[in-house]
Amino acid sequence: MPRPRRDSEILPAKDRLENAFWELLADREYRKITVTDVVHEAKVNRNSFYYHFADLPELADSAIMHAVADTTAPPVDTTDLDPDDEWRRRCTELLGNPQQRQRLDRLALIAGQHSSPELVDSLKDFGRLTLIRDLQLDPDHLDLKNDLMIDFTVGGMLAILRRWPELQASISVEDLLNEDVAVLAMSVYLSLSKENMLEYWKRIFRNDIHNQHERA
């Protein structure tokens, strides 16, 4: 007799559709991907696709959003941690975790040759919104310096993602620790918890924060 089916072994249709999007984007240009391609790759029917998504761009947005937000690192109490030690631990975790490397591989597709301006804009928007949220900033009341630093961080993220296919085989923890601010910004964004991001952000603006407290 065949082994009874276990639903837990089968990914939900929405997850299979998003995975299919990434598989297809690795194989061909975004403009050449169709809904038919996606449902065939995901092994679902068209009704299932349209139950979850209005069209292909909505699927792409959902896949990008989840890749940006997805992290397997558990929350860490940073009260008694040395920031530099925690920085090294997080970088090591990023490079050694297969799920995180897959996440980088997928995001790199959005910055790669098969992408489109629309996909890049989506990645920028989700990256920016995630960073603002995790830093507990008010998106409607950003001062110029914070606004510029967020744009700079997202720009650094894209710059590294464009080079990720050639970097992934050779990049080391030391590279992440010693490269310029754009690389560090990318690493912070991809690997640090909210608490650590706040800590490093404060270190960037340490003098400003100190001066603001003094004026208060």
Score class of each variant (00 low, 15 high):
M1F: 05
R3Q: 06
R3I: 12
R3F: 10
P4A: 13
R5L: 15
P12S: 07
P12H: 10
K14R: 10
L17F: 03
L17E: 03
L17N: 00
L17P: 00
E18Y: 00
E23S: 13
L24S: 01
R28V: 06
R31W: 02
K32D: 11
I33R: 01
T36P: 01
T36Y: 14
T36Q: 10
D37K: 04
V38H: 03
V39C: 00
V44H: 08
S48Y: 06
F49G: 00
A54F: 11
A54L: 12
L56C: 06
E58K: 10
L59I: 11
D61C: 13
S62C: 08
I64M: 11
I64L: 04
H66C: 09
A67V: 07
V68R: 00
T72S: 14
P75E: 15
T78P: 00
L81W: 07
D82T: 10
D82N: 10
P83I: 06
L94M: 06
G96F: 08
N97R: 06
P98Q: 12
Q99N: 11
Q100G: 05
Q102E: 09
D105P: 01
R106M: 08
L107P: 01
V120W: 06
K124L: 04
D125N: 15
F126P: 01
L129A: 15
I132W: 02
I132M: 04
R133N: 07
D134P: 05
D134M: 11
L135E: 09
H141K: 07
L142S: 07
L144Q: 13
L144P: 09
N146L: 12
N146S: 03
L148K: 14
D151W: 02
F152T: 15
V154H: 01
L158D: 04
L158F: 09
I160R: 04
R163A: 14
Q168M: 05
A169M: 13
A169E: 11
S172D: 11
S172F: 04
L176M: 10
L177I: 12
E179N: 09
D180H: 15
A185M: 12
Y189W: 06
Y189K: 04
S191T: 11
L192E: 03
S193N: 09
S193W: 03
E195S: 12
I204H: 02
I204A: 04
R206G: 06
H210N: 07
H210T: 15
E214W: 14
